[in-house]
Amino acid sequence: MAEEVSSQMNSLSISETNPSSSATISLVSGDDIVFKVEPTIAKEMETVQSFIDETDGKITTIPLPNISSHDLPYVIEYCEKSIAGKITKEFEAEFVKKLNNEEVKELFLAANYLNIKKLLDFLSQVIADRIANKSVEYVRRYFGIENDFTPEEEAKLREELAWTFTGVDPDDEDEN
């Protein structure tokens, strides 16, 4: 299945511009699935590229223990579109429609780990959109953040912002 996906990915990628580094790069997901990608894709992933640079391009198999084989194809797909200059509003809307909240968060962390600025910015916007106009409790649940204000702090805060605690959208059921 993974091989299938990666061969699909390869067929989508644009041709390598730098002939001296034309070997494909193998990205190994946390659950040990190998994804073969063009070096141009790796360039989009700063973390991967710096690994390649540090080893003078000798090592082309890169373990990405933080990223699952479920999430990695999404990242690769985005990078491919990015290289091809095909990141459009339509593509982004379609892309994000496929993702539930949990996947958005996982991809965000993956983008952060791989240091892909464009994907990170895009997902930051997606997350912001998904928590906009939600209750404080919803936002806490979304991020798994404990309310660790002390009761005194909380009381003070509520007093300072008493006039704001109205008018949020009802929480929706899709918490994942």
Binding site: I131, V139, I145, L161, F165
Partner: peptide
């Protein structure tokens, strides 16, 4: 990226 209302009324009091 949140608009100002969300920032004031929600995000700032999360933690």
């Amino acid at each position: 990226r949140l608009d100002t209302v969300a920032l004031v009324t929600s995000a700032s009091v999360v933690c």
